[in-house]
Computed example of a mutant assay.
Amino acid sequence: MQSKDVQGRLDDVDRRIVDAVRRSGRLPNNALAAQVGIAASTCLTRLRSLVDRGVISGFHAEVAPVWIGRPIEAMIAVRLRAEGRAAMSEFFDRVAAMDPVINAYYLAGADDFHLHVAAESTDALREFVTDRLSTQPEVAHTETNLIFAHQRGGA
């Protein structure tokens, strides 16, 4: 989570670069520079600085799971046992690396984690939840919700 102090360190040009890259990470540098209204060399220097500072944490392709043979998506809520809470960070790292996890969220609230997963079939989803996730010694409870559709937000 970023504090307002960290967010406040971006000037107007940095904010325009971040906004443009957020909307389209595939913009070539010269197009990004033109859109932001600065020279290409300045844009490249600022973009590299934003990456180095952790403002932009990466560039990636978002692939629709159905196209890689994983048409079943679900959000799985996970609660840990009280004694498992001492190793929450380790658990988080371990489950985030599991296949079929797409995204893992470490939460405050009733649930400790939400896992966005994509599976080949309902059988594969069931196997992941019952045989791989629920058998982790830290896990007290899971709740699986199927995802019918989703859209990336504008923020």
Rank of each mutant, 00 (worst) to 15 (best):
A77L: 10
H116N: 10
I102W: 00
Q35R: 14
Q2H: 11
L32W: 03
D5H: 12
T130H: 14
D12M: 10
S89E: 08
D5M: 13
T135N: 04
L107F: 02
P28F: 05
H60C: 13
A86G: 14
R9T: 12
G25T: 05
F148V: 12
D111E: 07
H114W: 08
I17T: 04
A82I: 07
G69Y: 08
E120L: 07
R15W: 02
V36A: 08
A74L: 13
L80T: 00
F92G: 06
R26M: 02
H60M: 14
R9G: 14
L44P: 00
A20Y: 03
T144F: 02
G153K: 05
N29D: 13
F148I: 12
S41Q: 11
A33H: 10
D52R: 12
Q136W: 00
T130L: 15
A155R: 12
A155Y: 11
D111G: 01
D93G: 01
L133A: 01
G8F: 07
L133F: 00
M98I: 00
T130M: 15
P65A: 09
A97K: 09
D112L: 00
N145K: 07
G37C: 08
V21E: 02
A86D: 12
A61E: 11
G154A: 14
H141Q: 11
I38D: 00
A64K: 14
A64W: 13
D112H: 03
L47Y: 10
I17R: 03
A61H: 10
N30E: 04
Q151C: 11
F113C: 03
L133S: 00
H150E: 10
F128R: 09
A87H: 14
T130D: 14
H60N: 04
D11Y: 08
V55I: 15
I72S: 11
V63H: 05
